[in-house]
Simulated scan of single mutants.
Amino acid sequence: MSAIVWIAAGSLAAWLWLLLCQGFFWRTDVRLPPRREPARWPSVCVVVPARDEAEVLPASLPSLLAQDYPGRAEVLLVDDGSADGTGDLARELARRAGGLPLTVTSAGEPPAGWTGKLWAVRHGMGLARAREPEYLLLTDADIAHAPDSLRELVAAADTGGFDVVSQMARLRVESGWERLVVPAFVYFFAQLYPFRRIGRVGTRTAAAAGGCVLLSARAAERARIPDAIRQAVIDDVALARAVKGGGGRVWLGLAERVDSVRPYPRLVDLWRMVSRSAYAQLRHSPLLLAGTVAGLALVYLAPPVTLVAGAAAGDVTAAAVGGSAWLVMTATYVPMLRYYRQPLWLAPLLPFTAFLYLLMTVDSAVQHHRGRGAAWKGRTYARPDAVAGDEV
């Protein structure tokens, strides 16, 4: 057999393994588990770290204040050194909207060894501790919640006995680049951390989606959250691993009515979003980077390349095997496009999107080795610690 056939066969074998043996990652039916209303609704503090979020806050904060939660609940917004009036805007929105009580506070600049977001979360959790809540909802300032979101999260945690219940918010998909890149972002995340495995007892797979994390206060204390993960750039995954590593139970699934309102209209916006943490995911390891690039090339780029090369060379076997691998890849992407209500003709373009992600990952490594590291809203973390125990 020719080299093209061998490459195509390797890619097809990889896709058959992903299809059947990687936790059915491509399915999008992992939603909040069966739940019932508890006899007594536990108390909750909602902690919202916010840095320069005046643009999105009017679309997100009122949705938190409007929660119809039957128990005691309040919102703590931590203004993380904003320069755009985020804190004052939050107070004004609360004055207009009413609803749950809102406290706006400031954490100050993070000390050495802390990322800004986790320092703000630590400050908010410290304030919450005085209220003695049974649960903490950690949610980003760009996340809008349906009125029953908190009620459903708490009911799911109480019914299922989970210490963490997290929903991956539905990201905004409006611009052309968002349509091309955003559904693939969630698809790749689910491939790395299959949702079905996360909820199983006895598995090592653990992850959460930082935009919406309901966390048991007892589990947070047991796992020393957030101090134990204070340098983590990928803080949501680190949080879930710390909780699960301490014997807690974690659940993650796709959201139905929890939405991100942050726009990423241009490719450069999406590029920054991905590249700021991609190399941290690889533990800043050149060997893992090389393996990732080779793996992406074999799994995502080889199918169309071997199809075209085989057809051009008259190698029917190479073209057929490469085409079969591309077909399996396309089929696994269709459910995610349906979840995001996007046209299915985008599915065959996944190799191109994967190539963009490959370039973003390489760029993330380049920026790290130039000393720029992860950069977000005016802060740069030159050498952020990688999350320990990345095995899936």
Rank of each mutant, 00 (worst) to 15 (best):
R241Q: 08
V243R: 09
V243C: 06
K244E: 11
G245C: 09
G246C: 05
G248I: 01
G248N: 11
V250C: 12
W251S: 09
L252Q: 12
L254Q: 02
L254F: 13
A255V: 10
E256T: 10
R257S: 15
V258I: 15
D259T: 03
D259M: 02
D259G: 00
S260E: 03
V261Y: 08
V261R: 13
R262K: 11
P263M: 01
P265N: 04
P265I: 00
R266T: 14
R266M: 13
L267E: 04
L267G: 01
V268D: 15
V268T: 14
V268C: 08
D269K: 11
D269C: 04
R272D: 15
S275A: 15
S275F: 02
R276S: 13
R276A: 06
R276P: 04
R276L: 14
S277F: 05
A278D: 08
A278M: 10
Y279H: 15
Y279N: 14
Y279C: 15
Q281V: 14
L282H: 04
R283Q: 14
H284M: 14
S285R: 12
P286F: 06
L287E: 09
G291A: 14
G291F: 14
G291N: 06
T292N: 14
T292Q: 15
A294W: 03
G295V: 09
A297R: 11
A297Y: 09
L298P: 09
V299E: 07
V299W: 07
L301C: 03
L301D: 03
L301A: 12
A302N: 14
A302W: 03
P303V: 00
V305R: 09
V305I: 14
T306K: 12
L307W: 08
V308A: 15
G310W: 02
A313M: 12
A313S: 11
G314R: 00
G314F: 01
D315V: 11
D315M: 10
D315I: 06
T317W: 07
A318M: 06
A318F: 03
A319K: 08
A319M: 08
A319D: 05
A319F: 10
A320G: 07
V321A: 06
G322M: 03
G323V: 01
S324W: 11
S324T: 08
S324M: 09
A325K: 03
A325W: 00
W326E: 03
V328H: 02
V328G: 05
M329C: 08
M329H: 10
M329T: 03
M329R: 05
T330Q: 07
T330M: 10
T330Y: 12
T330E: 03
V334S: 09
M336Y: 15
M336G: 03
M336T: 13
M336R: 04
L337N: 15
L337K: 13
Y340P: 01
Y340S: 05
R341A: 14
P343D: 12
P343K: 06
L344F: 10
L346M: 13
A347E: 08
A347F: 11
P348G: 03
L350R: 00
P351M: 01
P351R: 01
F355A: 00
L356D: 01
Y357F: 14
Y357R: 00
L359R: 04
T361S: 05
T361G: 08
D363G: 05
G371Q: 01
R372I: 10
A374N: 07
W376R: 12
G378R: 07
G378P: 02
G378T: 07
T380D: 10
